[in-house]
Each structure stands twice: as C-alpha cells, then as structure tokens.
Design a protein around this nucleic acid. Sequence first.
DNA 1: CCCTGATTCGC
DNA 2: GCGAATCAGG
Length: 176
Amino acid sequence: MEAGLSWTDDRVALLRRLWEDGQSASKIAAQLGGVTRNAVIGKVHRLGLGGRARGGEEAQVAPQAAKAVEIETAIAVVETQAPEPVAILSHRPAPVFPTPAPAAPEPVALSVSQRVTIMDLRESMCRWPLGDPTTPEFRFCGARSITGLPYCTHHAEIAYQPAAERKRDRRVASFR
DNA sequence: CCCTGATTCGC
DNA sequence: GCGAATCAGG
C-alpha cells in the first residue's frame, strides 16, 4: 500500500523547497516519509544543494523557517498548557466519522494530551493521528510512547486489540 | 542523550 | 543513484 517510494519529481521538489526553507534533514525525512534523514542528506548533496547553513559562520535555521517552527511550537505549547477543560470530555463534539455503535466513551484518564505537529513528532512520541490529515489542524497524539511501539499506552490499547476480542467487542477508533 | 549536517563506500 | 554507517560537532 506504500510502495514505490523513491525520488520522484514531486518528492524532489518538496525536498528542495523544505531544504531551502531551512528545514532540518530529519524533519524533511519525516514529512516525505519512507526515507531517513541520511537519505535526505545524501540526496541533497547529489542535487548539489549541500553546503547550506554555510556562508561564513554557522547560520542555523533560516529566519522564516524559524518563525514557522516558532509558531507551530507556540500552537503546540498553547494546546498543551491550556487547562484542557476536563469537562470537554463529557461534552465532546460529534465525531468526524460516523459512529455505528455507541462505543464506550473511553473513561481513560487522558489527562494531558500533548498534540504535536509532524514537525515536533519524535521517535519517542505517540504517532496516533488526531484529526483530518488534509487540514493544518492535523496533529499526532505526541504523548510518551511505549518503548518499542509507535503509540502511547492509551492508543496502543486501541491499536492492538486481540483479534478474538476485537471480533465481538468491536469499538470504533474514530481518531479522536 | 538529544540533535545537526558531511562523508564514505558497498550496493 | 542510493542511503546506512560513520564521523564530527552542538
């Protein structure tokens, strides 16, 4: 389902854009998907884009890129620090996807939802998707993931339900 | 330990 | 051409 990942014209174009925009290799790799930061760096050099961040001294992040990251981070921080009204749990908005069965409201102690953009998502963070991937509001859970797994304890329970049990006790993972 | 890019070199 | 391994550094 995810085959043919290679340096197609559009992927190269995106790579160029992001690299020239000052994004780091690892972040670019994350956005491209299917490649490591090494692959990105290797490609950058082959494209002759290398030597960025040079010019005399060490220029870390491009101003505009820094600004963008700054904003993204600010958003993440705000959403994280915001009191996150516990009440919202008992009064949540309608699910994005149709919910066939009532599906138990998951009384789980969601306490703090990190919510991070792909920019801030790291290996040790829960990769459970939140929201519509096609919108800028899209986020990943971001909570501390279980070592060796891509999800936090909460989402791992949803993601890895025993086949047998899942058969009858099916619950809809409406990505919320 | 987290991260960064740079380089090498077998494939 | 590709990218893992490795290196050098913050």
